[in-house]
Design a protein around this nucleic acid. Structure first.
Lengths: 205, 205
DNA sequence: TTTTTTATTAATCATTTGTTTAATTCATCT
DNA sequence: AGATGAATTAAACAAATGATTAATAAAAAA
């Protein structure tokens, strides 16, 4: 059964939405089943009726969330039509939008991959970032002598670092700079254009 | 009372060490007082005898850990004697060493600042990163026309992103690249030299 | 040594938490 | 309308958990 084609009833969706909200915000252990029931306005027993256990419910949400997070990336990275530079712009833009919309997403992803790294394998089967079109294009550029040579792992890591880390450390940034929420969002929107430039400067000869 | 000058008995140290290990690895909610007691080989009641409550114990460890994490950074950033480039090398080197030694540190810091952003203020009083010598030196370089103009917040964020994020996402990197623990450490050690170069390329005209 | 304070222990308490049960309501089909 | 199965509910259960108590052991003070 594909992860995208599973159908859920209204009640199940209510439970899942509330659970996702709480799990992303507070993590698995800090979230209680009674909280989920209250947040979704359902009876406590329905959680187990539909999802068997808190752990199972969590696993479903985790897999869906990770899947959404990574499939977007792979889409962009493997697009045959776009140039390397366009890919950088698209990833920055898409990811920054995604994380503005769901601020708790990056820390959740990071925590889950730490607690359960193998769940990552279920998600990423066949989605080889290191063999993506993006990496091919970078390697081509190196061969042509327009890009500096660098281990692709560094190349990919740097892109993600510049995009994701500011969101993970947003509480620090907001405190240090005494920002409002909208100020922060504005700064992140600036980065959509800046990150591609920075990456290019890092690799261009 | 200064955070560095507090004295603890042997038993208290045993409890704190075990608690730090578990809190950093699993977080507050997922760690039980009985686990801490077992890990430190002390009687369960001693935890409350010495530290009043699990929450209090956690707060002490959190403050100490955050303090250690940030004070190292501020030391380097405010050094009057070193150049900007040297500061970049030193931060990279120190931080990467620190995180190799304590792999759970970065995610812990990130989670705590998310759950309790104001604890950050207690730690960082007077330690103004944005008014550090490092930022001064960068601004000077801009005035002299050797560096491109960029909001200092981006400049500082980018440095930390490139240093810290790979550790936060280490489970992904290890899985994707099929690395052993030592392979990962080696790649991170490479970055000690690379990150300063990348940052310079980002800002140099 | 005797007394007093401090440290340690096993047992227990009171809540919280995940889960289940059994009864009831609701919807669907004949 | 009546029967059948699914959905929902309130109540309860059992285990886990943070915290406390009261007794004992160890250390320090007298």
């Amino acid at each position: 059964m594909n992860i995208d084609t599973v159908k859920y009833s209204d009640t199940e969706i209510k439970i899942k939405d509330a659970a996702k909200y709480l799990f992303l915000k507070k993590g698995f252990s800090a979230t209680t089943t009674r909280e989920i029931a209250k947040e979704s306005n359902i009876n406590l027993a329905l959680l187990n009726y539909y999802f068997t256990s808190k752990r199972k419910l969590f696993e479903i949400i985790m897999l869906e969330t990770l899947h959404g997070f990574f499939s977007k990336m792979v889409e962009v990275y493997n697009d045959e039509k776009t140039t390397l530079e366009e890919k950088l712009k698209l990833t920055s833009s898409k990811y920054i939008d995604m994380m503005i919309a769901e601020p708790h997403l990056p820390t959740f992803v990071v925590n889950e991959l730490k607690n359960n790294p193998s769940s990552f394998l279920k998600i990423l089967k066949g989605k080889m970032i290191m063999k993506s079109k993006l990496v091919d294009q970078y390697n081509d550029g190196v061969k042509k002598g327009i890009y500096k040579k660098m281990e692709p792992i560094h190349f990919v890591t740097n892109i993600l670092s510049l995009i994701v880390f500011p969101f993970i450390s947003s509480p620090i940034i907001i405190k240090i700079e005494k920002l409002g929420k909208n100020d922060f969002i504005e700064i992140m929107n600036e980065r959509k254009k800046l990150i591609p430039k920075w990456i290019i400067q890092m690799i261009k000869k």
